[in-house]
């Protein structure tokens, strides 16, 4: 982890870093168990197709929860993240791996964060996250208005 930033070092537009994470079918099962969200669209191919999806998709909350790791690591104390919101715009398909372990990742996501706003009175920085599904050369935004407020007070 990088050293905790201080308020005086922050500038609007500043990049706080980037990261990637991948998802496998096993990750979706782990998130279902940890979160209590057992909706079968996140683990059963037949059910997902029956409700009109192209196949199993990741929990939007898993993508949201994983993306904010960039911000908590940057902030130094996760409790400094006082507000975090997003809209779910595009599903993240997580197909069954064609071969090998079910832990084999079949979706890759890229996360970047930059400071969208600084509030001098409340000593808070709004970090705007870009969260994209990476498929070869193609990148698709899966979250929009993904914003985390970090308190430096």
């Amino acid at each position: 982890m990088s050293p905790t930033p201080t308020w005086d070092q922050l500038e609007k537009g500043q990049n706080i870093g980037s990261t990637t994470f991948s998802l496998s079918r096993a990750d979706l099962i782990r998130y279902a168990a940890a979160s209590g969200d057992h909706n079968p669209i996140h683990w059963n191919e037949r059910f997902a197709r029956e409700v009109g999806l192209d196949g199993v998709i990741a929990h939007g909350m898993l993508t949201m929860g994983a993306a904010v790791g960039l911000v908590t690591d940057w902030a130094g104390d996760p409790a400094a993240v006082t507000d975090y919101q997003t809209r779910f715009t595009k599903p993240v398909p997580v197909p069954d791996a064609a071969e090998g372990s079910p832990e084999t990742a079949t979706a890759e996501l890229a996360v970047t964060g930059k400071i969208g706003k600084l509030d001098e009175d409340s000593k808070t920085a709004r970090v705007d996250l870009t969260v994209e599904l990476v498929e070869g050369e193609e990148r698709t935004k899966v979250l929009t208005k993904s914003q985390a407020v970090v308190s430096f007070g």
Binding site: A33, A66, G69
Partner: peptide
Amino acid sequence: FAVAVKNQHPS
């Protein structure tokens, strides 16, 4: 939960 969302902060 932290493992499931890949949040690795030690806290």
